[in-house]
Design a protein around this nucleic acid. Structure first.
Length: 260
DNA sequence: ATGGCGGTGGAGCACCGA
């Protein structure tokens, strides 16, 4: 069972990249963020032609998340429970039925939170607290669970090129990292770190200032696993080559293999 | 490290992202 997550930065601009990735890497489940379109505008036909079921939670212009799966998607949840006043499409979850049992997967686009002296930062922290509360409930189910997406959190200093540059940024502020850690402390495993202890394992490089050729990256895209999923973890990989394509997203996919 | 990119909407350029 291969599960990938990718902030695609507009699915319509990136359709060729996406189709190539689905063909070459063949994830069973693909979690997308920043599709930047309404549900009706999602290139559903093209993706279904590759053998995927498609569930979207889109909105006009900004945000938007989706789940693609070779297995049927059931019990689809759009939006975080207890966050009904949130007009931003940042969360979609579903149960994937396989012959070896059920697996629950969510595609998450956590708010950026900048600038930190505006209401965007408290919105980010509040959103993280809603996510933690929901994760706590899901963990009670004691089933394989993968919470994958763009968390907009740099967990540790070694997850960015220069911690001094990010010191006052919403992605790296102590409160951001502590709130993320409190999510992990529920018993979730950061899949990449469970498999790879190397530094400079980045998932995002800014379009500006030659960040990619200079390897000025950050690691903000994560797959968090319940104990029942972590027990099945075989490997985790960052598809860094995707940043070198024509018209790339500024994020690259991250993927795991589970023995499921 | 930030002028320097790139997406959206709409037909200029503001807004957003990280």
């Amino acid at each position: 069972m291969r599960i990938a997550t990718w902030n695609i930065n507009s699915v319509r601009q990136r359709l060729d990249c996406l189709i190539g990735y689905l063909r070459d890497t063949a994830p069973d489940i693909m979690c997308l963020q920043e599709i930047k379109c309404v549900d009706e505008a999602f290139p559903r036909i093209e993706i279904e032609a590759l053998g995927y079921n498609v569930e979207t939670h889109g909105q006009k212009t900004f945000n938007g998340v989706a789940l693609l799966s070779k297995f049927p998607l059931e019990d689809v949840r759009r939006g975080l429970p207890g966050n009904d006043e949130d007009g931003q499409a940042r969360y979609i979850e579903a149960v994937v039925s396989t012959k070896n049992g059920a697996l629950r997967v969510a595609s998450i686009y956590l708010p950026n939170g900048n600038p930190v002296d505006t209401d965007k930062y408290p919105y980010k922290i509040s959103w993280m607290e809603h996510l933690r509360a929901h994760a706590q409930n899901l963990l009670c189910l004691e089933e394989p669970l993968v919470l994958a997406g763009d968390y907009n959190v740099i967990p540790q200093a070694r997850d960015c090129y220069d911690p001094n540059v990010w010191a006052n940024d919403a992605l790296f502020l102590p409160q951001t990292r502590l709130t993320f850690q409190s999510l992990l402390n529920l018993g979730l495993t950061d899949a990449l770190r469970a498999c790879n202890d190397e530094d400079k394992t980045y998932t995002f490089w800014d379009y500006q200032a030659g960040a990619w050729p200079k390897n000025w990256g950050i690691r903000i895209d994560h797959l968090l696993l319940s104990p029942q999923a972590a027990d099945k973890l075989q490997n985790a990989h960052i598809d860094k080559n995707m940043r070198a394509l024509e018209k790339p997203s500024d994020h690259v996919p991250v993927r795991i293999d589970l023995s499921l």
